[in-house]
Simulated assay, not measured.
Amino acid sequence: MSGPDWLEVRQGEAPLVVGMPHTGTEIPPEIEAGLVSPWLARRDADWWIESLYDFASELGATVVRTRISRTVIDANRDPSGASLYPGQATTELCPTTTFDGEPLYRPDAEPDAAEIARRRAAYFQPYHAALTGEIARLRTIHPRVVLYDAHSIRSVIPRLFDGALPNFNIGTNNGATCDPALEAAVAAACEAPGYTQVVNGRFRGGHTTRHYGRPDDGVHAIQMELACRGYMAEPEPPTPQNWPTPLDPARAGPTRAILRGALEACIAFAQATRDPK
């Protein structure tokens, strides 16, 4: 598909869209000029997710991915700026701090309201227009479509959560964004010796899951937040010299097999049931 050069859309025909809003590392020079550290601005990316899910197209899934860094715009935040987790630490639509709370911008260089609006129009809206368009396209083919929002995060970030995050963190906004059968099927696919999981724990689904998940209208959305240790080494603390580490085949292989089962469960769910609408 044609579109901005930072937006990747790989179309498939299966009733599944895989969104990747945080895998990007591209930062326009005019924005990078105001940052404290380009490395710090990229540190919280969802590293190697596009490689970990490289089998998605083989399953017939549609993949929508932005290569723009989440520091420029977080495509999984409410565009109004409202917090998705009131009372808990989080980052903004245009983040001004890292997950650990460090400032991203030099003094007086943080984006103002006009700049946030510009970035929203330039990057947020095209990404979500692509998601909307692909869901609509697949809904003309299938009575049910699943939107699977793919994420990852470092396993230990005390500012955001206590202890080490489970390997697989499934979010459906407490069951509001998809049929219970889909939630159960994805959770079952993630059951494996040596791995941990939680449903609607610290991460219950971001803007993407909550905005598009309309089970009564045939669109079922689910978020998967992976702990990075499941597919890459996690040195502590991460530094410019040691982070990000490469994708580790020994770790990624078993994790990829589990994730393949999760996506297959999404497709099976969508194909097995027919909505009346």
Rank of each mutant, 00 (worst) to 15 (best):
C94I: 04
P111L: 10
S80G: 14
G81V: 03
S80R: 09
G101S: 05
A109P: 03
P79D: 10
S69G: 11
T71Y: 13
H128D: 08
A109N: 06
V72F: 12
C94K: 02
Y105G: 04
C94A: 12
R118C: 03
E102I: 01
I116D: 01
Y127M: 09
T66V: 06
A109G: 02
A129P: 01
P103D: 05
T98G: 08
V64E: 07
A89R: 05
R106Y: 02
R119Q: 04
Y123D: 05
R67C: 10
A75W: 04
I68M: 15
R106S: 02
T66K: 03
H128M: 10
E102R: 08
T90P: 02
I73W: 08
R118K: 07
L93C: 12
E115W: 00
R77P: 09
I116P: 02
G60H: 00
R119C: 00
Q125V: 09
D112Y: 11
L104A: 07
A82P: 02
I73S: 13
T98H: 01
A61D: 12
T91H: 13
L131S: 07
E102W: 05
A109M: 15
A122M: 12
V64F: 07
T97H: 13
T90M: 00
R118T: 06
D112H: 06
T66I: 10
T96W: 05
S69P: 06
Q88H: 15
E102L: 14
T62A: 02
I68W: 04
T97V: 14
Y123K: 00
T90Y: 13
S80F: 09
A61W: 08
L93Q: 11
E92R: 13
A109T: 15
R119D: 01
T98R: 03
A114S: 14
A129T: 13
L104D: 09
N76M: 13
L131T: 11
P95E: 01
E102Q: 13
T96E: 15
Y123L: 03
A130P: 10
T98M: 04
P86I: 08
Y127I: 06
A114R: 14
A122V: 09
A130E: 12
R120D: 03
T98L: 03
R106E: 13
A117T: 07
S80E: 10
E110P: 12
G87M: 00
P86Q: 09
P107S: 09
A114F: 00
A130R: 05
T97M: 04
V63P: 04
S83P: 07
G81N: 12
G101T: 06
S83F: 01
D78R: 13
Y127N: 11
Y127W: 07
D74N: 10
